[in-house]
Amino acid sequence: MTRYALNRLLVGLATLLVASVIVFSVMEILPGDPARLMLGINATEDAVVALRQQMGLDQPVVLRYLHWIGGMVVGDLGRSYTYSVPVLELVAERAAVSLPLAILSLLLLTVVAIPVGIFAAARRGSAADAATMAVSQIGVAIPNFWFALLLVYLFAVWLRLVPAGGFPGWSAGPWPGLKALLLPAVALALPQAAILSRVTRSAMIDVLGEDYIRTARAKGLPRAQVLWRHALRNALIPVLTILGLQFAYLIAGTIIIENVFYLPGLGRLIFQAITQRDLIVVESVVMLLVASVIIVNLIVDLSYAIVDPRLRAA
C-alpha cells in the first residue's frame, strides 16, 4: 500500500513540476513587456526599467521560475498588474464561487450517474434499460453551455424559479449562494452524468459475466445481493478512472458555464485577465486549475488501492 501510494505521489509531484514549467514557459514566450503594459504607452524608458527591476523581470529565467514556484508553494502569487492587489486575494475571492460549483457538480454527477448505471445493468435488455440508455445517448451529445441556456430559459425566464444569473455572495448565508449555483451545477453535471452512467452500466455488465459471479450465485446468493456485494466494488475500478478524467472536463466546463450565468468565478477572471493582458493572473489561475486536476487524479489513483487489494500489495 505505502509503496504504491508513494509511487503515485511521486509521479503526481513530477507531473505537477513539469506542468508548472510548461505554464511558466508559455507565459515567458508571450509577446509584450508586462512592465510597459502596466505603465501605459506614455511611460518613460527609465520608469519601465525601474519597474522591471522592481518586478524582478531583469533576472535570469531560471531564477524567475524558482521565485515564481517558490511563491506558489508559500501562497505568494505576486500582484495583479491591473488590479494592483495580491493575486492570491483575487483568486481566493473567485475560487469561493468556482470551487463550490465544481464540487457540487461532481457530487450531482456521481449521485445521478452511478445508480442509473447500476439500475440499467441490473435490468439489462428491459424497456427501462433501453429508455435510460436512449436518454443518456442524447445527454452525451448535448453541449453543457447550450443545456445551460435552455435551463435558464425554462427555469428562470419561464417559471421564474431561480435567478437567471449572477451571484449574491456567501455573506447572506449558504442558501442564496447555493441557489445561484444550482442551475450551473445541473448544466455541468448532467451531460457528464450521461457518459458516466453508460460507463457504469457497461462495467457492471462486464463484471456480471465474470467467473466469480457464478461462484457467488452457486453459493445461493440471490441476484440482487450478488450485484451489491460482489459486482459493484469490482465495477468501481473503471468507473473511478472515468470519474477522474471527467473532473478535468468539469474544470473546463466551469470556465464556460460561469460565462453563461455571469458568475464571478475563476473562469470569468481568466477571460478578463486575458483581455487586459494581466499575465500573472492568467498564469496563476491556469496553474491552479491544472494542479487541481492533477490532485484529483492522484486521489483517484490512491482510491484504486482502497477498492482493489491487488494494488495494496504492490
Binding site: R214, T215, R217, A218, G220, N234
Partner: peptide
Amino acid sequence: SEARMCALRGDDIGMVFQEPMTALNPVK
C-alpha cells in the same frame, strides 16, 4: 422458484469450477 433455488444452491448442492484463478472475487 428462484427463491427455492437460492435455498438449494450452496446448501444442498455445491459446485466447484474449472478456473481457480478467476473463480474467486479478487476484492474480497
